[in-house]
């Protein structure tokens, strides 16, 4: 990962991470309710894994940002349902529903968007401060 140069790196990379999180929520919600014939084929919810990236300790101690290291499948098991007339039903009449909890995803979506907004707020405040600092002594 590249070095953290300034405050725009900190908040910008955090915004990128939150956007990955929103994307996984969108894909999970889009696939909620899909049905598969086997347990392996059924959709499983995707979750991003966040990790702190620290800046060079000598120059900027305490400064860090966040990166998405991987997007992993959640361990929730697909739900087995008896639907013998469904075209995807297996020989015994069972289908497997996607392992997505819609309520959990909605909460995740609201939290991600709030934290994204917080980072936007930080950037716009800092930018205003920088503009005022440039005009110092005028």
């Amino acid at each position: 990962m590249s070095e953290i140069k300034n405050i725009f790196d900190i908040s910008g990379r955090a915004m990128a991470a939150q956007l990955v999180r929103l994307n996984t929520v969108a894909s999970n919600l889009a696939n909620a309710g899909t049905i598969a014939s086997t347990k392996e084929e059924a959709f499983r919810a995707l979750k991003p894994v966040f990790q702190t990236t620290y800046a060079d300790q000598m120059k900027h101690s305490g400064v860090s940002t966040v990166d998405v290291v991987t997007v992993a499948e959640a361990s929730r098991a697909p739900e087995k349902a008896f639907m013998p007339h469904h075209p995807s039903a297996d020989a015994d009449g069972f289908v497997f529903r996607a392992a997505v909890d819609e309520n959990e995803e909605m909460v995740e979506m609201v939290e991600a968007s709030r934290q994204y907004q917080n980072n936007v707020e930080v950037i716009s405040t800092i930018r205003a401060l920088m503009m005022r600092t440039i005009n110092m002594g005028k």
Partner: peptide, 14 residues
């Protein structure tokens, strides 16, 4: 400011 921005950036990191 940079340190507080780092904290806000890491609001969701376990």
């Amino acid at each position: 400011n940079e340190i507080l921005a780092s904290n806000i950036a890491n609001a969701a990191t376990p």
